[in-house]
Design a protein around this nucleic acid. Sequence first.
DNA 1: CGATCGTATGTTGCATGCATCGAAAGGGTC
DNA 2: GACCCTTTCGATGCATGCAACATACGATCG
Lengths: 234, 234
Amino acid sequence: MHATYDRAMQTTPDSPPPTLLERLRAKITSGELEPGNPLSEVSLAQEFDVSRTPIREVLKQLQLEGLIEIRPKVGTFIREPNRREIVELFQLKEVLEGLAAALMARRGPCPELDQLEDIVAASEVSSKAGDTDTYASQVQDFHQTLVDGADNTKLVEQYDRLMNQLAYFRLVRKTLKHPGRAVDSSREHRQILTMIQDKDPFGAETTMRAHVFASTQELLVPPTQTTLSLDRDS
Amino acid sequence: MHATYDRAMQTTPDSPPPTLLERLRAKITSGELEPGNPLSEVSLAQEFDVSRTPIREVLKQLQLEGLIEIRPKVGTFIREPNRREIVELFQLKEVLEGLAAALMARRGPCPELDQLEDIVAASEVSSKAGDTDTYASQVQDFHQTLVDGADNTKLVEQYDRLMNQLAYFRLVRKTLKHPGRAVDSSREHRQILTMIQDKDPFGAETTMRAHVFASTQELLVPPTQTTLSLDRDS
DNA sequence: CGATCGTATGTTGCATGCATCGAAAGGGTC
DNA sequence: GACCCTTTCGATGCATGCAACATACGATCG
């Protein structure tokens, strides 16, 4: 379901057409382009049927977002965060989602809260059934809805940028989850939801952070030893 | 001392010359340009002695940073966050600085910790002496050093962007501090520093967040009623 | 006198061309 | 065979020109 974190994909049917920035960003975050690949301005210009000028403007913006690296006079390359940056980003993810949980708890009833209830209920089913694919997309929805429910546009912006940098889907795709983790994770989701409903900001934040931390550990230290391949660059 | 949060100003003497992006960003964050002012591409191009093309690239990036607003086919204007956005940004500031305190506590001894010690000691003097100007710059240094000391580059990036959006200096300049707040603030700084030195991440984070929250309240709800001027837009 | 439409102007949006620089390939020498 | 210099090629960096659009102003008409 969630092929990318680019919110341009999630808008209403007749929303304005995606900008060049959004389209190129989607190509990167969706994994259509491999990391390290060179991005030629001319080839991109041909592909999107524009001249090099708007392409260059977009590339500069994507560099600011941390998705690509422009080596002056050399070329543009898709950037992949090294292990240290991934850890840094996950530390940020933890506090940002924690803040979202706290804010949502303080906010009280809202549409996102109902959505959260639905998502948690559905994910409890799929987690117990062992349907990891369905569960994975529901996890995405849970976190996304929670951040949206915080009703803080700046938080949403920073969170989206963070998730794009992580190329989260790519990490998740590489990861084979523990069989038992899904039910634990689902139980944590339920706990968080309950605390939000009970208007317990502190409890919601604390539990959310613990949950994110646990999930992060799951990703960074998977059962198999395939993580060693990530340790190549500093 | 701290005229702006643009870190390009704080690098070593013979660092590479500031880029066009940094120069234009500095012009905005320093308050040299008034909010709402139109930024003509041609006039900027003349001012920086380049053509419109690189100016346009920079403007697109500054728009992504939230510093300016580009109204298509109309013009570019310096953006000022409304009151709601300011509150949102301060909520983020709280958790980001809290995270910084926690990370620094976990990290242990480092150059930034020594700097922090010096800053706190100096600020205790100036706060008791009632030297609010000196104290204000030391407060900036305290927070900046703390974020740097967290040793998390992504945190630094997000924090800098946030402070630029807030145009923090502008807010502070508008604010007349309570006379008694400085000594309270200084005492809180000392508490935070002690907790970091004691390697108490949780205590450091909690205290830091309380401190940021208190300072924020001070800014958003000043004793005088001059804040009403901020309430004009939604 | 007021409203409306046409025009004038200033702005951005983008395509194109040239200069410049890096990196890789080729040839020569030791 | 290894190394270095030269050359070539391809890429980016930027200046410029034209088209398109939004806004403001003024003339015209009711």
